[in-house]
């Protein structure tokens, strides 16, 4: 029996991963749940691959063991695959369809004389992830955020989608409350709308 719900946040440095983790942390604590995280600070400030191990329930170690994350939340699509060793079989992946190619890949694409080399696509990533799970929510988070009234609310879309997971341990309203208390005051309305759009999109995908 699993008494801990493990979430692996991942993305690219500068995408606001720490805020996302802080939002869920606050929501969990306000709901009386135990939380522990293993965070990555330091060298990769922007544009490196970054992650947060986020554990709710009865975690002991700050690091999720391989193959045991119930949920991967990826703010960039290739990063969902980069941390696939943490995802458990049939776990849930919530990912942005956004791809931010590393310059080495841009170099390979640009300098291929026959123009055959292409960037990695979301479809390729989903196909690979399917070896582990079919519960994949790939969101056009930027489009949804723009629809919500502010393109900078992509994270709220992803958090909303996470709340749509059937076994997600933190009550939805606690997450909304924490989210709205931590985002800039001017953006509360757009973030709330983004959260709802994410929730709807997540609910549709996860059935």
């Amino acid at each position: 029996m699993k008494d801990t719900y493990d979430i692996m946040f991942c993305g690219v440095g500068g995408q606001g991963l720490m805020l996302l983790s802080a939002i869920l942390g606050k929501a969990a604590v306000d709901s009386g749940l135990e939380v522990m995280t293993g965070e990555q600070h330091g060298l990769s400030q922007r544009h490196g691959s970054i992650y947060v191990h986020f554990r709710v329930g009865k975690p002991i170690s700050p690091l999720i063991p391989y193959g045991k994350a119930d949920l991967v939340i990826a703010m960039e699509a290739t990063e969902a695959l980069r941390y696939v060793e943490y995802l458990r079989d049939d776990g849930v992946v919530i990912m942005s369809k956004r791809i931010m190619p590393p310059p080495s890949e841009t170099g390979a694409v640009a300098l291929d004389k026959e123009k055959k080399r292409k960037y990695v696509t979301v479809d390729q990533i989903v196909e690979r992830l399917n070896a582990v799970t079919h519960k994949i929510v790939a969101l056009d988070s930027l489009e949804l955020a723009t629809k919500a009234g502010n393109p900078l609310t992509e994270n709220s879309v992803l958090v909303g989608a996470a709340c749509a997971c059937p076994d997600f341990p933190i009550p939805t309203e606690a997450v909304r409350k924490a989210l709205l208390s931590l985002v800039p005051r001017k953006t509360v309305e757009a973030n709330s709308a983004a959260f709802d759009l994410g929730r709807q999109a997540g609910g549709t995908c996860l059935g």
């Binding site: 391989y66 193959g67 695959l81 980069r82 060793e85 590393p102 992830l129």
Partner: peptide, 23 residues
């Protein structure tokens, strides 16, 4: 859990990705 099997499978799945080094 057979952790080695998990990481081995992951390495194969990730083969399409290039390293995202700090930059």
């Amino acid at each position: 859990l057979d952790y080695d099997a998990v990481t081995k499978r992951a390495d194969q799945l990730k083969s399409i990705l290039l390293e995202r080094n700090p930059i």
